[in-house]
């Protein structure tokens, strides 16, 4: 395990001292390792979005610390600014932040702010465009002439171009069709493979997180309720349901099968389900 980002007793309170005071994060602790694909699930308002903005120094914790490679990102102004680049944050519906005349210029916004040389910026823009499948000719058009899914890819490329070691995405596939969703998830996965980057993804699709992630963080009522592998988390299905969350549909089917007396393991992906069913069939065939 090679920790890159550590969160210690992180607490954040909105609008302190007004009637709108709200504790969005309450003593959250966890560690992200290099190259890990981690999913965050949680009900709306459970503190996911606030948590993400803490990790790259957009919001300052009320108490607690965020450590990037062991250094508190708030201990020095330079470190805070560095954290913005080393921890890339893709907001929900990121296509609404596009503003430049061409796709190329928009992707270059981040690297330019980093103060890189022209050559390096050019390399990064082309590489980032490659990761999300934006073609050479699309780099020259206005981002506003692209389709919704393509705009989303450009926006994600804008963050990837900074080559962050940790890439955080807030529901990157919200509002896209199945093909678009799959494409974006694959783009993210290929970026992780290429750069050994850590991915932290908020998602409401239990199927997606079950299939893609190595680890799941479950947020509930401003607290970190669970931290474990998808199988560990989805084994606690009833608890998840009380948090207003769900488990993958295939897991639901298998839970019901077990209740009916069929001897099947807990599965949470389609592949696992196929395998379990095959084994069941073989077992019966021999008997």
């Amino acid at each position: 395990m090679n920790p890159i980002l550590q969160v210690e007793d992180l607490t954040y309170v909105y609008s302190i001292g007004t009637p709108f005071e709200h504790r969005a994060l309450d003593k959250v602790n966890f560690t992200l390792n290099r190259g890990e694909f981690v999913g965050i699930i949680g009900h709306t308002g459970s503190g996911k979005s606030t948590l993400m903005q803490q990790l790259n120094g957009l919001l300052k914790p009320t108490s607690g610390r965020v450590l990037l490679e062991g250094q508190d990102i708030w201990s020095d102004k330079k470190l805070t600014r560095q954290a913005r680049f080393r921890v890339g944050l893709v907001f929900q519906y990121p296509e609404y932040q596009l503003f430049e005349e061409t796709v190329y210029k928009d992707i270059a916004f981040g690297p330019t702010n980093m103060g890189l040389s022209g050559e390096e910026i050019d390399r990064r823009v082309r590489e980032a465009a490659g990761f999300v499948g934006i073609t050479e000719s699309q780099l020259k058009v206005s981002p506003f002439d692209l389709s919704g899914g393509q705009k989303r890819r450009v926006a994600i490329a804008g963050v990837i171009a900074m080559e962050p070691e940790v890439l955080i995405l807030d529901e990157p596939t919200a509002g896209l069709d199945p093909v678009g969703r799959e494409g974006i998830l694959q783009n993210i996965e290929s970026y992780r493979r290429a750069k050994n980057a850590t991915i932290l993804m908020v998602s409401h699709s239990m199927e997606d997180v079950a299939r893609l992630t190595d680890r799941l963080l479950v947020m509930n009522g401003s607290k970190l309720a669970m931290d474990g592998t998808p199988s560990q988390v989805f084994d606690r299905a009833e608890e998840l349901v009380t948090m207003g969350l769900n488990i993958p549909q295939v897991t639901q089917v298998f839970l019901r099968l077990r209740q009916l007396g069929v001897e099947v393991p807990n599965v949470y992906t389609l592949e696992g389900a196929v395998e379990a069913l095959c084994r069941l069939k073989e077992g019966k065939g021999h008997a």
Binding site: R84, G88, F91, F109, G110, N113, M162
Partner: peptide
């Protein structure tokens, strides 16, 4: 503003012209 800050936009330092330019995004 948060999204652009996450891409390294800086609204708090520089001359008045720099700050005005920073508002375009």
């Amino acid at each position: 503003m948060s999204a652009q800050k996450a891409r390294g936009a800086d609204f708090e330092s520089g001359s008045i012209i720099d700050r005005a330019k920073a508002l375009i995004p």
